Amino acid sequence: MKKQVILATTNMGKVKEFQALLEPLDIQVMSIHDLEGERIPEVVEDGETFEENALKKARAFYRQFNIPALADDSGLEVDYLNGEPGIYSARYAGEGKNDQDNIEKLLEKLKEVKETELRKAHFTCAIAFVDGAEEETVTRGECHGVIASQPRGENGFGYDPIFYLPEEKRTMAELSKEEKNKISHRSVALKKLVENLSVKIVD
């Protein structure tokens, strides 16, 4: 029987990534859409780090549904902008804005920055696993690249179309799902999580 965990997110793009990454481990990743009629806990993401926000979400979902909960907080950090947009990546252009708005704001801030070296950036992901007060684990993963001058690719979500991977000679949005899952910040953090859990989520 598959081990069930609830993923604390409304982002179906993230749900699909987690499902693909954990499927080989015989773990069923449930989303809020699998829990019809259940109240979704409201979580104010006011932590100062990705780790703090991930833990807040995982704890809230564990308390609400009483099953092991996974949550991630991730974002893009641009060296030239002193780490912006960072923990504000999803709402960089303001509340109610979408991925395209966030991308346009970032590209506007970098429009005068032509040198590749100055456009270096990395995706960061912190993943929290909560299965009661005695079992809380947080891991962190990163993926390094460069901010492209314009979007390329139709896959992925968020800032993927402008996150260029020099070793791949493609943006993250030009990779297949399988290729992305091998190198993404989320994949790195999740692999660390599975390795580091003192009580394995895989029995």
Results as ranks from 00 to 15, higher is better:
Leu7Glu: 00
Ile67Arg: 11
Leu70Pro: 00
Asn66Val: 15
His185Phe: 08
Leu22Met: 10
Glu38His: 13
Tyr164Arg: 03
Ser149Pro: 09
Ile201Pro: 09
Val44Phe: 08
Ile127Lys: 02
Arg91Trp: 00
Gln150Asp: 09
Val199His: 13
Gly158Asn: 03
Met30Phe: 10
Asn98Thr: 11
Lys114Thr: 11
Asp203Val: 14
Glu38Tyr: 13
Lys114Ala: 07
Ile67Pro: 03
His122Lys: 14
Gly145Ala: 12
Arg39Ala: 15
Ile6Met: 08
Ala173Val: 03
Glu117Pro: 08
Pro41Thr: 12
Glu17His: 12
Thr124His: 12
Ala189Phe: 03
Asp101Trp: 01
Ile201Val: 13
Val130Pro: 06
Leu21Glu: 15
Thr139Tyr: 04
Thr116Trp: 14
Asn155Ser: 14
Thr49Arg: 06
Glu45Gln: 01
Glu168Ser: 03
Arg63Asp: 11
Leu35Arg: 06
Val43Ser: 03
Leu21Ala: 09
Lys200Trp: 05
His144Gly: 02
Leu175Met: 12
Ile162Trp: 07
Thr10Ala: 11
Pro41Ile: 04
Lys120Gln: 13
Ile127Glu: 01
Ala148Trp: 08
Lys16Glu: 09
Arg39Trp: 06
Ser184Asn: 05
Lys14Pro: 08
Thr139Leu: 07
Glu108Ala: 14
Val202Gln: 15
Gly37Arg: 04
Tyr164Asn: 02
Ala148Val: 05
Ala121Tyr: 01
Ala20Ile: 10
Lys16Asn: 13
Phe163Trp: 04
Ala69Arg: 00
Lys180Asp: 00
Gly158Met: 01
Met30Arg: 07
Asn102Pro: 06
Gly96Met: 02
Ala93Met: 01
Val138Thr: 06
Lys191Gly: 15
Lys120Leu: 09
Arg186Val: 09
Glu45Arg: 00
Leu197Glu: 07
Leu193Ser: 04
Asn53Tyr: 00
Asn82Ser: 13
Gly83Asp: 04
Leu76Ile: 13
Glu38Ile: 14
Ala8Arg: 01
Lys109Asn: 10
Ile127Pro: 05
Ile32Arg: 07
Glu51Ser: 10
Thr171Met: 04
Glu117Asn: 15
Gly153Arg: 01
Ile147Val: 05
Leu193Trp: 06
Asn66Met: 08
Gly96Pro: 07
Ile147Cys: 14
Glu154Asp: 14
Gly47Phe: 06
Ile27Val: 13
Asp73Ala: 04
Asp46Ile: 05
Leu107His: 12
Leu107Cys: 03
Val43Gln: 04
Glu45His: 05
Ser176Leu: 05
